[in-house]
Nucleic acid binder design. Structure first.
Length: 877
RNA sequence: GGGUGCAUAGCUCAGCGGUAGAGCGCCGCCCUUACAAGGCGGAUGUCGGCGGUUCGAACCCGUCUGCACCCACCA
């Protein structure tokens, strides 16, 4: 196909134009462009600048992570925001970094150790942590390279990691402050425990799903003093310390206060009355296991019941007796079997669907467990976090999602922040030989002397990421960065992470920064889904690697597709078809610019006066300014889909399909000065490329730097609506478009081929276009009505009258029928063959010559051509 | 159990009080020298059902049905 893309001879300053290939090749363009941007320091923000700041901190991806479509989506939007603000004259900072991701990273390294037949305990704490750092060095942060590939305009000189020295200092500082303020405390409570990760996890790290269990009803006690309870976790009965019934439940009134025998043990337990019990549910009696169930724990507190732990940290039964050493699930069946043998199982229901908590990291069934942990007292912090949104200091986009935020911050339980891991920020508390507890601040030495030990636990990963908006800027030091760039402007992230991260940044930001909120706007995005709206996840087969798509179609195509799907708060379905469509758009822009360059479009000098402009010019400039205003409004409202769609249609439908096509008649006119059109076309492209740059940075940069003498779009000035409008020109062009479209439709209906010239008379007296008769004739492919002209049809449209001679029209249906018969092909076959080759129209002419012509042009249709050639050769005569 | 959102063309979705839209797909014609990753033309919808408000409803209100998602102490 390259043999017929010979560049036309070139003249003038834009000979580079013709060096542009006919197709956009992202792979060749994107890498070098990104390197150039970084080398020139375009993304490095200057804290000493006079420009107003615009700051976004990236939601730090896990150090273990790779770029998935969700990142690609959010990064595209954040990049678009910062790129646009930079062009608008802000000192724009998009700050990158990564999260140390406690459990995830520790799991990765433990897996590595397991492959070597070792556990972390074989190494010991210090060596293990060293090993994790080594792992990070070697395998961590792959996502950073992938972000470059996407085109993320982040300030690499400010890259941060949550375990950096500076950020660790921030963690210690705030821990100490919270501790001293009494907002951090240690307490024994029921927590969610993962028996595989061997650590506590917070409520939001638990994923609930419907599991099929078995609900058994067990008779406790004997005779009249017996009571039936139901459970799905029979093994916990070993730790029962009471049975609870509703205080007003008459069925059990006689039992309240009595003790009954607990089966399989030699213990007796009391029957207590507690209004938490729902008399309607089951038998209306509940077994109470304070050490293994949060509700039961609460009942235990109210009735002063002992808590009996029956399992160790791995979920293995520790109670002496026949079940000791059994895993919790083995113990469950064993205990049910034993009870059944004693005739104590009075009813079973299996499968019984109920929701069961799983560790969000490893999917292991969570075991509620009584344990000593560190907690943040969130009430005062959460109140402030709620108020900041309530009184409008922080806006949530889209506003509907604010309710979700309030639901959370207004009903937040205390936050369990200690994790029984080695990888993370170690809790800065030391215990003395006589039970003293000392919290050690960042500049303090741990207490000296014998017998002092540091707490073994580390902090929840979200504790350090909650400090991200200011710890990354140097807090607790009073740095220039902090002064310039805090508070940040927009926090853009998925709505699924409101509780994990957003609310915590709000709490910590307001607390640490003296009530100064960490950002003004929370922009919440939906989740990326596949083309049928199904959730994409790493474990799903529908999951797509955005890198594959970037390789195949370019980063801009992926970005544009994502931006175009980004309706505020709504999920984004994405399929390969749409990425292809975006790729096509990039290619379209490429070729339109190529056309402009070949025809000498220029951005030099001022725009010609309105008096010099044609109606077409005035129309497109009027539209251009309208689009600038509309695009601005959409970008400002985080309506990326609207902005993208608007620009897509303006560029393709109006600029490329009409303005450029209409310009051709000017450029082809010959002799007539084309400077005005060259300048206007240059202007329109210049502005359109700028408007698209935030979402399609690569192709726009490549084209713009070719079209203009500018250094880079990244640092150029964002277009402004000049206020220029011309309604008369818009109306006139509407007439032209209507006229042309109607005539084309008529021609198609009559069987005239698109390029076929038809003799016709044209009366434009009713349209105001009389002066442009020649141009209109060209558009409509009308030739002058010569001698002997006989109109066979007359078409009144848009105030004009067109009379045509249709004698040259082809009856396509009849042609097809004839060919089908002649070639001995089934009609369907013919269609398939001709679809790639061309069509019946020209096959009707000279077959040999036609096939020749096609062969030269269509390498991809080789097979079909061969077959058709054979068919044609075998035709008799 | 509580809450939120959604039901519009074959698919995925915009539109949110005034003549039904986009992308992809589909049909027909075409290489007209920027682009076949293209051009031109075309078809397709009782805007989930039923009521109501209005001169006028895909859009507002009520209700029903179906589907998503979020939250919660489902023994």
């Amino acid at each position: 196909m390259t043999e017929n893309t010979q560049p036309p001879a070139t003249t003038g300053p834009h000979s580079a134009a013709t060096e542009l290939p006919t197709q956009y090749a992202p792979a060749e363009v994107e890498g070098p462009l990104y390197e150039r941007w970084v080398e020139r320091g375009y993304f490095e923000a200057d804290a000493a600048s006079d420009k107003p700041p615009y700051t976004i901190v990236i939601p730090p991806p896990n150090v273990t992570g790779t770029l998935h479509l969700g990142h690609a989506f959010q990064h595209t939007l954040m990049d678009a925001l910062t790129r646009r603000k930079r062009m608008q004259g802000y000192e724009a900072l998009w700050l990158p970094g990564m999260d140390h991701a406690g459990i995830a990273t520790q799991n990765k390294v433990e897996q590595q150790l397991a492959d070597e037949g070792k556990s972390r305990h074989d190494l010991g704490r210090e060596e293990f942590v060293e090993r994790v750092w080594k792992w990070k060095q070697e395998y961590g942060g792959r996502i950073l390279g992938q972000m470059r590939r996407l085109g993320d305009g982040v300030d690499w000189s400010r890259e941060r990691f949550t375990m950096d020295e500076g950020l660790s200092r921030a963690v210690l500082t705030i821990f100490k402050r919270l501790f001293d303020d009494g907002l951090i405390y240690r307490a024994e409570r029921i927590i969610n425990w993962c028996p595989r990760c061997l650590t506590a996890i917070s409520d939001i790290e638990v994923d609930y799903q419907e599991d099929a269990g078995e609900l058994v009803s067990i008779r406790y006690g004997e005779g009249d003093d017996s009571i039936v309870v139901a459970t799905t976790r029979a093994e916990t009965m070993l730790g029962d310390t009471a049975v609870a019934v509703h205080p007003e439940d008459e069925r059990y009134a006689h039992l309240i206060g009595k003790r009954i025998k607990l089966p399989l043990t030699d213990r007796t337990i009391p029957v207590v009355a507690d209004s938490h019990v729902d008399p309607e549910f089951g038998t209306g009696a509940v077994k109470v296991t304070p050490a293994h169930d949060p509700n039961d724990f609460a009942i235990g507190q109210r009735h002063d019941l002992p808590s009996l732990s029956v399992m160790d940290e791995r979920g293995v039964i520790t109670v002496h007796g026949p079940f000791e050493g059994l895993d919790r699930f083995e113990a469950r069946s064993a205990i049910v079997a034993a009870l059944r043998e004693q005739g104590r199982i009075v009813a079973e229901k299996r499968p019984y669907l109920h929701s069961v908590g799983h560790c969000s990291r490893c999917k292991t069934t969570v075991e509620p467990r009584l344990s000593m942990q560190w907690w943040v007292k969130v009430e005062p912090l959460a109140k402030a976090a709620g108020d900041a949104v309530r009184d409008g200091r922080v806006a949530i986009h889209p506003p509907e999602l604010a309710k979700r935020y309030f639901d959370w911050v207004d009903n937040m339980h205390d936050w369990c922040i200690s994790r029984q891991l080695w990888w993370g920020h170690r809790i800065p508390v030391w215990y003395g030989p006589d039970g003293e507890t000392v919290c050690v601040g960042p500049d303090e030495q741990p207490p000296a002397g014998e017998g002092w030990t540091q707490d073994q636990d580390v902090l929840d990963t979200w504790f350090s990421s909650g400090l991200w908006p200011f710890s990354t800027l140097g807090w607790p030091e009073n740095t220039k960065d902090l002064e310039k760039f805090y508070p940040t402007d927009v926090l853009l992230t998925g709505h699924d992470i409101i509780f994990f991260w957003v609310a915590r940044m709000m709490m910590f930001g307001l607390y640490a920064m003296d009530g100064k909120e960490p950002f003004h706007t929370i922009a919440l995005t939906g989740l990326v889904r596949d083309e049928h709206g199904k959730k994409m996840s790493k474990s799903n087969p529908n999951s797509v690697d955005p890198l594959d798509w970037m390789d195949a179609y370019g980063a801009d195509a992926v970005r544009f597709t994502l931006a175009r799907g980004a309706n505020p708060g709504a999920d984004v379905p994405i399929g390969e078809d749409w990425v292809q469509a975006s790729r096509n758009f990039a290619n379209k822009i490429w070729n339109a610019t190529r056309f402009a360059l070949i025809n000498g479009a220029t951005v030099e000098g001022p725009l010609p006066d309105a008096a010099e402009l044609s109606a077409t010019d005035r129309w497109i400039l009027s539209r251009l300014n309208t689009v600038v205003a509309e695009a601005d409004a959409a970008y400002d409202g985080y309506e990326f889909a609207k902005a993208s769609d608007l620009l897509f249609h303006f560029a393709w439908d109006e600029v490329f399909d009409w303005y450029v096509e209409l310009s051709k008649t000017v450029f082809a006119a010959g002799g007539r000065p084309a400077e005005v059109s060259q300048r206007v076309l240059g202007e329109v492209l210049d502005v359109t490329l700028k408007l698209l740059h935030p979402v399609m940075p690569f192709v726009t940069e490549e084209l713009w730097t070719t079209l203009t003498d500018g250094e880079s779009l990244v640092i150029t000035t964002w277009p402004q609506d000049s206020g220029y409008r011309d309604e008369a020109a818009e109306a006139e062009l509407a007439t032209v478009r209507k006229l042309v479209t109607e005539v084309r439709r008529f021609r198609a209906d009559q069987g005239l081929q698109p390029g076929q010239r038809v003799p016709a008379t044209l009366d434009l007296s009713g349209t105001g276009l009389a002066a442009h008769e020649e141009a209109v004739r060209q558009l409509l492919r009308l030739t002058p009505a010569g001698d002997g002209f006989a109109a066979t049809a007359s078409l009144p449209v848009a105030g004009a009258v067109v009379a045509l001679d249709l004698s040259g029209a082809i009856d396509f249906a009849a042609e097809r029928k004839r060919l089908t018969k002649d070639l001995g092909l089934a009609e369907k076959e013919l269609k398939q063959a001709t679809a790639k080759l061309g069509n019946e129209g020209f096959l009707a002419k000279a077959p040999a010559e036609v096939v020749e012509k096609i062969k030269a042009r269509k390498a991809t249709a080789e097979a079909d051509i061969d077959r058709l050639t054979t068919q044609l050769a075998n035709l008799p005569g």
